[in-house]
Nucleic acid binder design. Structure first.
Length: 469
DNA sequence: CTATGGCACGGATT
DNA sequence: AATCCGTGCCATAG
């Protein structure tokens, strides 16, 4: 009887094991930490003890206290990076006030990825009247990727049975937060809001607002004569206005955010992400070893509670089955997390060696690398690599936080060479010229591709570059 | 006539 | 199997 009950349970275990390994790998450390927290609270078989093993000398230590012996990592050679799982509790900067989307409650952790809605909520959360919160949530969940509102404010008002003015008041509050103009119903409105707020500190040329109202399509650089005619001003003034708008305003407030193929309005996109991995250098020499810290999903050591394992022998009849599955799940979770960490550690050990140039000297030195190649080197499946890389953020020695996927960008190095080329040029070169030049430097790219890269970097076409600066 | 952007196709990547 | 990316062809703006 016992055997019969156990045999069928083993099968699902193996498939479940695989399934869970997969799903854990693609989580960021913070997401995983939340999952672990939840399991700890629910599953009595799991326990978290306040100690960990020093990555360098294998001593057992209290969690979050550095190893007295190895407080400085031992020096190793440039091609022998120091890679370890970090239990530092200050790995992530503390969050300021908790205002997460899910009902302003719950987690004490700063989310690893803050989406636009949460980012805004953090800013206005405190000053938002309680009864306006449902309205704000409605607005924030109706934003598209550009940060524009996709539903009619009247609809929102009707839905919540409030006057339209209440909704508009909330929208105005939202528009004044960081991606300035976010929550507007149209690009025009967004521009006007930005103008209004920036105008307080910035000196804006006169008639900018009129220009914006004249229509977005007239704001493109080559149509300044049309714009001039439309609002009755000299062409030079129109040009100046267009310039001001292009430099300071953004018709799609959220375009500068991460994950976007943000071309024209690329800005430093890193502010809203917390690293899963931190790389630092030991000294300032060129052959400094690199230190790679990988965020642990918890502090201390997660393990199956030995007491629980014993207690299960004489469990009460009605609880026996439940405890058994709890125990299996706990074991599984611990194993899977170990496997996840192991994969990431091995990945980083290779990656840091291959992309050393990129890490130390920047984009130009990025060596084109595909996830598939990496998977091959590490003897793991391609999809495993894909999951390990996706969604993770990594901090470089120069403090920049970038998506881990950037290490696998196939065109970044060519783009950065292109950027340099254009920066150094004396007279603007056409795309065709640039294509030939790049081929000469060992980057065979088609003329059309140069154009695409240019657009990606937000560089204007040749005939417009001449007047700039 | 030249330079550039749009559309779409095919091959690589995930 | 779905997606992304480089490229060729063509229309259009200058």
């Amino acid at each position: 009887m016992l055997i019969q009950r156990h045999a069928p349970m083993l099968r699902p275990l193996t498939t479940a094991h695989l399934a869970q390994t997969m799903s854990l790998l693609e989580l960021t450390a913070l997401e995983l930490r939340q999952k672990v927290e939840a399991e700890l609270a629910r599953n009595p078989a799991l326990e978290l003890i306040d100690e960990y093993r020093c990555p360098t000398c294998a001593r057992i230590l209290r969690a979050n206290s550095p190893c007295p012996v190895c407080s400085h990592p031992q020096v190793s050679s440039p091609d022998q990076p120091i890679v370890f799982l970090s239990s530092r509790q200050d790995f992530y900067p503390a969050s300021s006030g908790k205002t997460s989307l899910d009902e302003f409650s719950g987690d004490d952790y700063p989310p690893a990825k803050i989406n636009l809605a949460e980012h805004i909520l953090r800013q206005i959360g405190p000053e938002l009247a309680l009864e306006d919160r449902p309205i704000a949530l409605h607005i924030l969940t109706s934003l598209n990727d550009d940060g524009l509102l996709t539903v009619n404010p009247t609809e929102i008002a009707l839905y919540h049975h409030v006057p339209r003015s209440r909704v508009e008041k909330t929208i105005r509050q939202i528009q004044a937060t960081d991606p300035l103009g976010v929550g507007s119903t149209s690009p025009q409105e967004a521009l006007l809001v930005q103008l209004e707020i920036l105008g307080e500190t910035l000196h804006a040329p006169s008639l900018v607002a009129e220009a914006i109202r004249a229509g977005l399509e007239l704001l493109s650089p080559h149509r300044s004569t049309d714009l001039a005619r439309s609002i009755g001003i000299p062409a030079a003034q129109a040009k100046q206005i267009v310039r001001f708008i292009a430099d300071n305003l953004n018709p799609f407030p959220a375009r500068a955010y991460w994950g976007e193929p943000s071309q024209t309005f690329a800005r430093d996109p890193n502010v809203y992400h917390l690293p899963d991995i931190i790389i630092s250098r030991v000294n300032d020499t060129d052959d400094t070893p690199l230190v790679v810290e990988i965020a642990m999903p918890y502090y201390g050591t997660l393990r199956v509670n030995p007491l629980f394992r014993e207690a299960i022998q004489n469990a009460p009849e009605d609880k026996s089955e439940l405890w058994q599955t709890d125990l299996e799940q706990a074991t599984l979770l611990v194993k899977c997390i170990q496997q996840r960490n192991n994969t990431i550690v091995r990945l980083m050990q290779r990656l840091v060696v291959i992309q050393r140039g990129f890490i130390l000297y920047g984009e130009t030195h990025l060596c084109p690398l595909t996830r598939a190649e990496m998977a091959d080197q590490l003897q793991v499946h391609e999809s495993t690599m894909s999951r390990a890389v996706s969604d993770k953020a990594i901090q470089l020695p120069n403090q920049r936080i970038i998506p881990l996927a950037m290490f696998f960008d196939r065109s970044l190095h060519v783009r950065s060479v292109l950027k340099e080329l254009i920066a150094k040029e004396t007279s603007p070169m056409s795309d065709a010229n640039l294509a030939i030049l790049l081929s000469g430097q060992g980057y065979p790219v088609a003329r059309r591709t140069v154009a695409k890269y240019r657009a990606m970097e937000g560089i204007l076409p040749a005939h417009l570059r001449s007047q700039a600066r």
